[in-house]
Amino acid sequence: MRTTLTVNGKDHSLDADPRTSLLDALRNHLNLTGTKKGCDHGQCGACTVMINGRRINSCLSLACMHDGDEITTIEGLGDEHNLSDMQQNFVKHDGFQCGYCTPGQICSATAMLEEFKAGWPSNVSGSLTASPELTDAEISERMSGNICRCAAYPNIVDAIRETAEEKS
């Protein structure tokens, strides 16, 4: 099945089995292995990418459903010589250990800050309508879809908080 995937601003013509998940398309067909598979069932967040700016679990979505979508993966946020602010803060705060959940954490965090800016409430927000304050609990709650078994959580929160502060 032919699909055109626009990944990190570049068009890729994909001819793959219709059962191919977006995650497997990225990893096995486009050689973009920065996006990780931790569970293949939407349970861990390792496969998080952004579709038109919104974070999704790419293991839960078929590649053929994304013809024409703007897909951003970790490779599109910055390379090792030119890291995004979020990536730099993950390094600075040791927001990872083995690094396997990390691309998903960073994609998720990057999109999460946009959701936050747009005023989306979360489960720990006091009000559904008032703009929430970016407390540690807000960051933790909004990042709880991304499991880190190495448990860099406190450092992940520090990295995200610093990135948000730099931005504002």
Partner: peptide, 18 residues
């Protein structure tokens, strides 16, 4: 900082199935 950090946060560190 970990010297392997930039590769890990940019998705360039290659794990087993890469």
């Amino acid at each position: 900082d970990r010297p392997d950090g930039p590769l890990k946060v940019s998705g360039r560190a290659t794990y087993a199935h890469e």
